[in-house]
């Protein structure tokens, strides 16, 4: 049978559009549902108070603070390491074999299941180094998890700085390191920032890596040091959804909403930075 190619095309394109909608519409629905159901639970008290009565009442302040601490710690660890690694890969490494091994290592690191990072953090930081279940252990684990994101995006940003900037800087008598510091990094900054913020969003939303390394089930006080356990938003949502019976659904949706807003805000900021600098890129 030979159908008119125009008709076939119309059918095919409709099917493609339909599939695309099947992917996209649920995304919109997830966000709308959480916004609608969660907005009612959001109040100043919800954001600024300790949970009470076995998490069935009160606020989620310690979880917000905990997530904030963990993300901050993860970035403090992963950004310097990732940035230096990216500089090495773009500016120093000439050895293509070694480069390939590093690239494969990064690909693998990006593909390691999040719960395996959790196991690793438990074995190395909690037990071997004896940090215990603590902000320190959790931050380091999350930091290692977001390392590939930071390396990859920083490297892309550094590679996109024109070679001529380096030549100019060197020809003016700058050392290699000065060239990187003053003629390359300032112009790669937007890309590095974008990658870092995406990493932050990822770290804020992950649960499995913090399960055994830091997350506290119910701990209605704020951390005093990096060796304390903390509650964290994603784990709190998990606990509320599966471990605590008879929780008012508003609290669940409210927690989901706060987590979603933090994560999406990070992504929105990253996208905005990228768009802003792309539009005014000067070379």
């Amino acid at each position: 049978m030979n159908m008119n190619p125009r008709v076939t095309q119309r059918i095919a394109f409709s099917a493609l559009l339909f599939s695309t909608l099947l992917v996209m519409v649920p995304v919109g629905m997830v966000i709308v549902v959480i916004l609608k159901q969660g907005a009612g639970a959001i109040s100043w008290e919800f954001l600024s108070q300790m949970p009470r009565s076995g998490m069935r009442a009160g606020g989620i302040l310690p979880a917000i603070v905990g997530t904030f601490c963990l993300v901050l710690g993860a970035v403090c660890f992963a950004l310097p390491l990732g940035l230096l690694a990216a500089i090495y890969l773009s500016e120093y490494s000439k050895d293509t074999f070694l480069n390939r091994i590093v690239r494969l290592a990064i690909i693998n690191l990006a593909g390691v299941p999040s719960v395996v990072f959790g196991l690793f953090g438990l074995a190395l930081f909690v037990n071997f180094f004896g940090f215990g279940a603590s902000i320190l252990s959790g931050s380091l684990t999350l930091g290692i998890m977001i390392l590939p994101v930071i390396i990859t995006s920083s490297r892309e940003a550094i590679d996109s700085v024109p070679q001529s900037f380096r030549e100019v800087s060197l020809s003016l008598g700058a050392t290699k390191l000065q060239t990187i510091r003053h003629a390359v990094l300032p112009h790669a900054l937007p890309g590095i920032l974008t990658g870092t913020i995406l990493g932050v969003g990822r770290a804020a939303g992950e649960t499995a890596p913090i399960l055994f390394t830091v997350a506290a089930f119910y701990l209605p006080r704020l951390p005093g040091s990096i060796f304390d356990q903390v509650m964290a938003l994603p784990y709190h949502l998990y606990v509320l959804s599966t471990q605590v019976p008879n929780v008012d659904s508003g609290i669940r949706y409210g927690t989901a909403l706060v987590l979603l807003v933090i994560v999406l805000l990070m992504n929105a900021i990253a996208i905005a930075i990228r768009a802003h600098f792309r539009s005014k890129k000067k070379w």
């Binding site: 992917v23 996209m24 995304v27 919109g28 997830v30 966000i31 549902v33 959480i34 999040s114 969003g201 804020a204 939303g205 992950e206 649960t207 499995a208 994603p234 784990y235 949502l237 998990y238 959804s241 669940r252 989901a256 987590l259 979603l260 994560v263 999406l264 990070m266 992504n267 996208i271």
Partner: peptide, 17 residues
């Protein structure tokens, strides 16, 4: 951007939904 948005939603939120 929709695809990026989906990638950004934390796993625990999708589990909850």
């Amino acid at each position: 951007s929709g695809v990026e948005l989906l990638a950004a939603i934390p796993s625990v939120v999708l589990g909850f939904i």
